[in-house]
Design a protein around this nucleic acid. Sequence first.
DNA 1: ATACTTGCAAAAGATTTGCCGCATG
DNA 2: CATGCGGCAAATCTTTTGCAAGTAT
Lengths: 141, 141
Amino acid sequence: MSKIEDKCKEKGVRLTDQRKVIAKVMSESKMTYGSKDHPDVDELHKRVSLVDKKISIATVYRTVKLLEESGIIERHDFKEGKSRYEPSTDEHHDHLIDINNGEIIEFVDKEIEELQNKIATKLGYKLVDHKLELYGSKIKK
Amino acid sequence: MSKIEDKCKEKGVRLTDQRKVIAKVMSESKMTYGSKDHPDVDELHKRVSLVDKKISIATVYRTVKLLEESGIIERHDFKEGKSRYEPSTDEHHDHLIDINNGEIIEFVDKEIEELQNKIATKLGYKLVDHKLELYGSKIKK
DNA sequence: ATACTTGCAAAAGATTTGCCGCATG
DNA sequence: CATGCGGCAAATCTTTTGCAAGTAT
């Protein structure tokens, strides 16, 4: 059983056959496609279709929405017209996107997290969520 | 003549009647609607229509795209389905979005800018662009 | 004349939804 | 039985584009 399936049970999200396939595909995302994998709905649909070609793209849309609202996966809107998804992780991370080839590098930086909290507080707000994306090009050596 | 019109001339962007109206509306955005103003295309179209109701929304789309590519205005994709725009400023700033009412607070923080540069460099990238959005709720006193 | 702009409506791309049959508790 | 779920196609929403006519250089 996949990690995401586990989390669904914890959160009381009902697991149908279709959802199990989608959960499995999401769970195996980085394992199979590398740490830079952040598939969009179309890509997810292609992958689940390999397992069960009857699953419609509408179901994929409905499921990622459900999983996102349950905090099980995360949606990102990088500078394209569509959303990309990844399984939620225990430790929050941010993204650096290679502007030349679209590669996504994940990073964790405690200092920047604290700083964001400090800024929000200074402005009179409680920080609930945040988005930090760096866009850059590879330095050649 | 509006500030944005000025910048168009500097950059060699041709100024048609329609573009002048759109430039004016963008220039007066924060002056007229407050520092929290980041209108979307639909809102811009409404505002330019008050000046000249013949201007089509397609022209507004084409013009904001042009202005954005020229660096004269900036596009933001906050967590909604559509883009919002604001005139470019000399000093870079980021945004805090009130999750309860959608209000946008702008802020500048040198420290966080430096930190981002440092992170990109450490990862072997030259930082070209970045996006930082904080989402929070107002602290009551 | 040549190249750029615009308005209109149609097209496109991503996402949502109505309907209805099907599955599940 | 009652509620929720999934497939399909149609609808929606934002944004882009083809075309023909108009404008500027």
